[in-house]
Design a protein around this nucleic acid. Sequence first.
DNA 1: TACCCTTGGTTGTATATACAACTTACACCC
DNA 2: GGGTGTAAGTTGTATATACAACCAAGGGTA
Lengths: 150, 150
Amino acid sequence: MREIVSQKLALAMADDCIAFRVRALNRVITNLYDTVLQPFGITVNQATMLIMLSLVGEATSARIGQVLIMEKSTISRNLDRMKKQGWIESSSRDRGREQFVRVTPAGRELLAAFHPNWETAQLQASELLGDNGVSAVHTLHAAVRKKHPV
Amino acid sequence: MREIVSQKLALAMADDCIAFRVRALNRVITNLYDTVLQPFGITVNQATMLIMLSLVGEATSARIGQVLIMEKSTISRNLDRMKKQGWIESSSRDRGREQFVRVTPAGRELLAAFHPNWETAQLQASELLGDNGVSAVHTLHAAVRKKHPV
DNA sequence: TACCCTTGGTTGTATATACAACTTACACCC
DNA sequence: GGGTGTAAGTTGTATATACAACCAAGGGTA
């Protein structure tokens, strides 16, 4: 009896679960990008941070978190790895507890270097998701953005 | 000069990047579910595996990977954790290298117990994404499913 | 039978992620 | 000035994830 009940619940959850679907989507898409970026020794996550920093010039950890919707401890450790690679550096504009980081020339070179591969991944992702799928992704991101304003 | 070039590239990537958006979406949605499931000591990932196993009765690691689009090493370690919790057990139907797992009664009880909280997360996610967003998630998942047939 | 190949699973290593606890620097207020 | 609180970052711990390397079992074939 309990088994029948849990079966029905399981079926309902499997049919509707948003998290499962978003997570599977994330794994597949992340893999596409990580695969094409792998020759450059950078992950798609770090590439995203590099792109964002390149755009804004320099930013604090907290600012990166707002823009990219990332947790501060994740950012702290990722910045460490990127500094070790020489792609970013601490800015001289630090004041007190705030530490500004900016992209180094090597970081900018890397960004230009991996751009074609990023295009490849974009193309693969677009083909996989279709035009409607791609705009859906933008719309979905805009929706979560509302709850995490920049 | 190089800076100007990399700026333009960065802008293009930031504007269009599918991976960044999917990954941010994943973080936000995963968080909703993990938060409401936290009192039960289960993560949304493990809950997904529990639901799937409950539906199919029993399955091998490889089968779980096909259905949930998960890498075998991830599954191996997650099954370990779930066994330690007593939610699943090895089935007697093992043959050779294939190891079937199935949900225990305790696992079924847990599933029934957390169902209301899962509903809460579903509601929150639906409100966040809107009706169109929710169906977009289903469509996107169906698209990746095509490349990872069950 | 012996060899080889494929498939299922585990383990090592590294990144990504989140929460909690902690440290430190600033700001504010009395 | 001194206490108090808040905000920025770091570090500990645990899960999730992927790839590579490995081991084991089975199957096929010469």
